[in-house]
Nucleic acid binder design. Structure first.
Lengths: 275, 275
DNA sequence: CTAATAGTGTCTATTAGACAGTATGTT
DNA sequence: AACATACTGTCTAATAGACACTATTAG
C-alpha cells in the first residue's frame, strides 16, 4: 500500500494492526549502609545495599521485588522510573541509568510484559525516614566463583540468597546468558536485574565518577575507600587507592574527630579536568 | 483488593487495566568492508560498515533506517531481532547484543512505540549476495571533538552525515544525554542507535573478543590490526598490538601470498585461557 | 601507653609507547 | 633493485602493586 503523503498515511494507520503489550520499569536502587561498631575505636563497617519492596498481592505474593510500575502511555520511557523513584524516596534528583530490557514471553504470569530495568545510585542519608512502608534496605554480599555468583541479601530480619549462572552462548564468543539457578524469595526475573546492576556498578566505578552519587557531600578518604571495597568486593591498598582518586576529590578545611585515632580530613567530589 | 490464591487472582486479572503499546526492535548490523586498492602492492583499505534499509513508505519515506520490526506477542524479546536478522541476512548464528531501549512519547508519529535496539556483528563474507533488495552497506567514518561526534556514512552512491551532541545532565555526574543536532537522511532516532553501538564496540574491543565475530576464520594480523584501527579510529603501533592480541590468536600453517611483499601468516581466533 | 585508623615515601614489577631494525614476497 | 608490508628486539615511560614507615587521637 502506498500513500501520497505522510498525513494521508497517518490517517489510514491503525495502531491495532500490531500486537500491543504492557511495559514496566523496575529500578535497582543501590546505596551504602554502615553498621555501627560496638568498639568505639573501630570504624563502621560498610555495605552496599539494595531497596526491595514486599509484594502483598499475586503474583509472587509475599516475595520481595524491585520497586517498579507500569509505563504510562503519555510519559517518556525515562520518566517512568523517575516517577517511581520519587514515589519511593521523595527525591527527584537521583542518578539513574538504564540497565537492560527483559522480555521473555512467560516472565509475568499475568500477561505479556516487557520490563526495562534501571539502576539508581543514591546517598542513603538523603532519604532517612522517607521510605514507603513495605520497602526495606537489604545489605548485599556476593561471592563469585567461575561462572556462578551467589548473592546474599540481609535486612536484619530476613536473609535472601540467590544464585546466578553465566552460561556461554553457542556460536558467539564472549556473550553470556544469565540464568537463575537458585532463588526462592525474589519475584520475577529480578535476581538478574540485581546482579546485572552490581556488575555494571563494579565496572563503572573504575572508569567513571558514579560512586560519588552514593556519597555525602563531605567524606573521609577512608570511607570512600571502603565504599570502593564493598562494591568491588576486595581490599585495596591505601597508596594505590589514593593515587587513583587523587584528582577526583579535593580536601576541605573540615576534619572528622572523636574516633579514638588520628582525625581524617574531609574531602568533597571534584570533577576532574583531565581525561 | 486481596485474593485467596494466585489462580483466583489471575482469573480476575484484566490486562486492559494498563496502557498497552507496541514494541519494535532495531538492529545495528556492523561489519567490515574493504576497498580494493589500485596499486597491487598496497593492502586493501578497511572500513567499518553498517547495514541500512531504505524506507519506501511513511513515516520517513525515502529515508534510511536500521532493519527492524515489531515484536510478536508470542516471541521472546530477543527472538525478534534474530528473526529480523535471519530475514535480512539469511543467517542464524550472528553475534547479537542488546544496546538500549528508546521510548520517548513522540519518537514515532504513528503511535506510541518503544524500541529496543540491538547490535549485531558479522563477517560480511558470510552473507555475500544474501542481502534483501532495499538494503545497502554504508562505510562508516566518525570524528569526535569535545562533546560532538560527526558520523559520515557512504555507500558509494550516497553520503549521509549526522551529528550528535553529548550533553551533561543536570545533577548527575558523568551521565550524558545524547541529542541529535544534525540529521536529514536517517529515520527515527536511529542516529542515536548507530552512535551508541559504535561507542559500545569501541569500548568492548578492548576488553572482550567480540571483534572476531567480524573476522573470517583465517586472517592476517595486519588485517586484524586494521580492523582495530577503523573501529578505534586511530593508528596502533605494531609491536604493542601484537602483544595485546598474542594470546587471543593462534598461528596456522597457512600464509597469504601474492601481494608484492612478504607473505603474512594466517591466524585463527583462539579463546584465551587466562583472564 | 595503646589500639586503631590516617596518611606518605619509595622500591619493584608490570604494562604501554616508541623507534629502529630485519625479513621477504612481486613486479 | 625497489616497494610495500610482515615481523621482532629493545629501550623508555607510565602505571600498578607492595611494604614500611610516620602521624594523631580517645580512652
Amino acid at each position: 500500500m502506498m500513500y501520497k503523503s505522510e498525513e494521508e498515511f497517518l490517517r489510514a494507520y491503525n495502531p491495532n494492526d500490531y500486537d500491543r503489550l504492557s511495559l514496566t520499569t523496575d529500578i535497582l536502587i543501590l546505596s551504602i549502609s554502615d553498621e555501627v561498631q560496638t568498639n568505639y575505636r573501630k570504624s563502621n563497617k560498610k555495605y552496599m545495599s539494595v531497596l526491595l519492596v514486599k509484594r502483598n498481592d499475586y503474583p509472587y505474593k509475599d516475595k520481595w521485588c524491585l520497586p517498579g510500575g507500569f509505563l504510562d502511555i503519555n510519559e517518556d520511557l525515562e520518566e517512568c522510573p523517575r516517577r517511581i523513584l520519587a514515589r519511593e524516596t521523595n527525591l527527584h534528583d537521583i542518578y539513574l541509568e538504564q540497565l537492560y530490557s527483559f522480555g521473555d514471553v512467560k516472565r509475568d504470569p499475568r500477561m505479556r510484559v516487557v520490563s526495562v530495568s534501571y539502576m539508581a545510585l543514591v546517598d542513603k542519608n538523603r532519604l532517612k525516614d522517607n521510605l514507603s512502608s513495605n520497602a526495606s534496605w537489604f545489605n548485599v554480599n556476593y561471592f563469585e566463583e567461575d561462572d556462578n555468583v551467589t548473592v546474599v541479601l540481609d535486612n536484619g530480619e530476613e536473609t535472601i540468597k540467590f544464585k546466578i549462572k553465566k552460561t556461554l552462548k553457542e556460536s558467539t564468543s564472549d556473550k553470556y546468558k544469565f540464568e537463575i539457578i537458585e532463588n526462592d524469595k525474589i519475584a520475577f526475573d529480578h535476581p538478574l536485574v540485581i546482579w546485572s546492576g552490581i556488575e555494571r556498578l563494579k565496572n563503572k566505578i573504575n572508569y567513571t565518577d558514579v560512586v560519588f552519587n552514593m556519597m555525602p557531600d563531605l567524606f573521609a578518604l577512608g570511607d570512600l575507600q571502603q565504599v570502593y571495597e564493598v562494591i568491588l568486593n576486595k581490599k585495596l591498598l591505601d597508596p594505590a587507592f589514593r593515587r587513583i582518586i587523587a584528582d577526583k576529590v579535593e580536601k576541605t578545611e573540615f576534619v572528622q574527630t572523636g574516633a579514638g585515632h588520628r582525625p581524617s580530613a574531609l574531602f568533597r567530589y571534584k570533577k576532574s579536568t583531565k581525561k
